[in-house]
């Protein structure tokens, strides 16, 4: 399932865990778990879109204007890309 998901992610322009769950005929919770596994194994990186500020939000005068609903992005790491290349060749 991990390889299958990795291939799906490698092919995709965007990810929707709901769509992947439906496509792979698996419960959403399981797809989320597999994502976590791919992240912990170093094949994927997840970015919450939050800036790494030195200043805690509570002290930031611009906190209220900052990104409150972050958009997540997924990145295939070098390990993930290399593995995917070897898998698809």
């Amino acid at each position: 399932m991990l390889k299958e998901l990795l291939v799906e992610i490698g092919r995709a322009d965007y990810i929707s865990k709901y769509m992947l769950a439906s496509k792979m005929n698996q419960p959403l919770g399981l797809i989320e778990d597999v994502f976590t596994q791919l992240i912990r194994l170093g094949f994927l990186e997840e970015d919450e879109g939050l800036s790494t500020c030195d200043l805690p939000c509570g002290r930031c005068p611009y906190a209220s204007m900052c990104n409150t609903n972050p958009i997540k992005t997924i990145n295939l790491t070098k390990k993930g890309q290399d593995y995917l290349t070897s898998l698809l060749n």
Binding site: G49, S51, T52, C53, Y62
Partner: peptide, 16 residues
């Protein structure tokens, strides 16, 4: 998109 609210956090959010 963040910059539409205010450019200061917009510039800060490029840290990602």
């Amino acid at each position: 998109i963040v910059g539409f609210g205010c450019n200061v956090p917009g510039v800060m959010s490029t840290r990602t």
